[in-house]
Simulated scan of single mutants.
Amino acid sequence: MTTGPAAATRPRNRRQLIVEAAGQVFSERGYHGASMEHLAAVVGISAAALYRHFPNKYALFAECADLIVDNLIAAVDEWPPEAALRDVLLALTRVTVSHRSSGGLYRWEARYLAREDRRLLRTKFAYVVERVTEMVRREYPLPDERLRAMATLGAIGSITMHHTSIAQRRVEELLLASALGVVATDPVAAAGTAHLVELPAQPVPRTRRAEILAAAIPLFARDGFATVTNVQIAQAVGLAPSAIYRHYPGKVDILVAACLQAAGLLAQAVDRSLCRAADPRQAVVALAAAYVAYCFEHNALNSVAQAEVAGLPADLRRPLIVAQREHIAVWEQQLRTVRPELDPRQARLLVHAGFGVVVEAGRALRWQNTPGHRDAVTALVTGALTR
């Protein structure tokens, strides 16, 4: 039996270490942007050694996708059904924070899973939602318990979607307070906030270039940028594939145009809505209402901008990141006016928690764009920020 130095130092939990490291790479680069060779290099092993644990990239990806939700299940199962909601939410927060670098994989990259694996992942997450819903129903008997439970998990899960650096204990405190603010919010509390929003319409495609962009956005949203081909885009517009290149040098240029359009529409919505706010607190509500309306009205466009920007080359990504930061800076300024005890990083973390509420609440409502749904989600976002 061989007992050389490599065997002596090989960690017993190597498979776990591989999954945790790979989850971070998939979250940062996307499924298609990560190779087995790069994954092996991050873990610190050879590609051959990685293949001894996983037969292919998909097998590793599927296990990574299950990592955080399996840990969430373990966290809720540690508590009896009669446990205090606060204790369970704190446990879920700690699990999520500990997997912060890889948790983003669930939100955007899970669409690349095979149908059965996606179904299993949804079933697991639904179990966590139902456990939280039972506790929300018992402790906060307000309407729409499941919606509030989903939104609460969105606030907690938001920590996986940004890199704001704060001491871990303070992160846990802020996320827990935000989550509890969501569950304590009556979803009808913001009824009638539509008057605060003047949402710009998505431009009508009047040129061939605009038609190509309009056709590509729903394809990118449904199937992911990496898997959509110029042939598919051309077919959707009724063009020969070669005709695409007369309007866009490459597929990535279509994606950049989509992201820039998303940033422009959101900036217009924010500017118009803030003009209608009479005081700082109403300004926060107006921001929430504008962002919610934008996400529901332009759901495919927003999902593309959120999911795909990280995979762009650095030079193309930079102006989009600047636009995102400018948008968040507006939120920070308004929120700190209402809550002066927050420093900029704390305010930024809470703003992202509000964004997370929109993602999960929107999914719970299947993005059905009705005034009632938009008002309910606006109320929950406001609760996440200001409670």
Rank of each mutant, 00 (worst) to 15 (best):
T2I: 11
A6L: 09
A6E: 12
A7R: 00
A7G: 01
Q16N: 10
I18N: 05
A21G: 10
G23P: 10
Q24V: 15
Q24G: 12
F26C: 05
E28A: 14
R29Q: 12
G30A: 06
Y31H: 14
H32S: 11
G33W: 01
A34V: 13
S46H: 04
A47C: 10
H53T: 12
F54A: 13
A59S: 14
E63H: 05
I68H: 10
I68V: 15
D70Q: 13
A74W: 02
A75G: 04
P80A: 10
A83F: 00
L85F: 03
L85V: 01
L90M: 12
A91V: 07
A91R: 09
T93Q: 06
S98L: 06
S101I: 02
R111I: 11
R118V: 08
R119F: 08
R122Q: 13
V129H: 00
E130M: 04
E134P: 10
Y140V: 04
R146T: 15
A151W: 04
A155H: 04
A155F: 04
G157M: 09
M161S: 09
G181L: 05
A184G: 12
A184T: 07
A191E: 11
P200V: 04
A201M: 07
R206D: 11
A210P: 06
A214N: 10
I217F: 02
P218V: 00
L219F: 00
D223V: 02
G224C: 06
G224F: 01
T227A: 13
V228N: 06
V228T: 08
T229E: 04
G238Q: 14
P241N: 08
R246K: 11
H247R: 03
G250F: 00
G250M: 06
A257S: 11
C259H: 08
A263S: 14
Q268R: 14
Q268Y: 00
P280Q: 08
R281V: 09
Q282C: 10
A283V: 06
V284N: 05
V285D: 13
A286P: 05
A290M: 02
A300D: 15
N302P: 03
N302M: 13
A305F: 05
E308G: 02
P313C: 03
Q324N: 13
E326R: 08
H327P: 02
E332V: 15
D343T: 07
P344T: 10
H352L: 08
H352T: 07
Q368M: 12
Q368L: 13
N369D: 12
P371D: 02
P371Y: 00
R374T: 00
D375I: 11
R387G: 15
